[in-house]
């Protein structure tokens, strides 16, 4: 499952100024692009008829609290034409907002809500940006690396009289 070399050449040429980094690992092609231009790139690829990267497989995020731009929002595209994938990433600082992808795909609705719920990344223009998995009154964003797992010490016979300790 290698990536499409022609598509790589095409994107390298077309979006030269917008690409900040490019990497390949285990035959997977990843672009890191400017946060303001991501929707334009995705829209272009959606309408493009040469490579047809018009299927949003996944939209998720990763968190790197030690970095200045801590959030990475990941878009994974798929082309039915030649069965290859393409990954785009955007780096965001804490509190920075990103344009919503719901204008292109309907599936981005819930996926962005999930990223908002679990990472606290805001999407501008999203029709219904509310918590989806955690309870409505939940505080914090659990999938951030600095959010603790809240492990509770189980009670055995030797510590049965002590109240459970939450780490």
């Amino acid at each position: 499952m290698s990536y499409n070399k022609e598509a790589e050449k095409f994107i390298d040429g077309k979006f030269k100024e917008l690409i900040r980094e490019k990497s390949t690992f285990r035959d997977e092609l990843t672009y890191i692009v400017d946060k303001d231009s991501i929707i334009d790139i995705l829209k272009f690829l959606y309408e493009d008829e040469q490579f047809e990267y018009n299927f949003l497989t996944d939209l998720t995020a990763t968190d790197w609290p030690e970095r200045d731009e801590r959030h990475e929002v990941v878009y994974l595209l798929y082309s039915f034409k030649d069965n290859t994938r393409l990954r785009f990433k955007v780096r965001l600082k804490e509190g920075e907002k990103l344009q919503t992808a719901t204008v292109i795909w309907d599936s981005a609705n819930w996926l962005e809500r999930e990223v908002y719920d679990l990472f606290g990344v805001y999407f501008e223009g999203h029709p219904d940006l509310t918590r989806i998995l955690t309870p409505d009154d939940f505080e914090g964003h659990p999938l951030r690396r600095d959010y603790s797992l809240t492990y509770e010490i189980p009670q055995f016979s030797y510590n049965k009289d002590e109240p459970p300790e939450v780490i």
């Binding site: 955690t134 659990p142 959010y147 603790s148 797992l149 809240t150 492990y151 509770e152 189980p154 459970p164």
Partner: peptide, 13 residues
């Protein structure tokens, strides 16, 4: 009964 393998923020122990 005890929370099982999921000792985390989401599950009631």
């Amino acid at each position: 009964s005890t929370g099982g393998v999921f000792n985390n923020y989401a599950i009631l122990q």
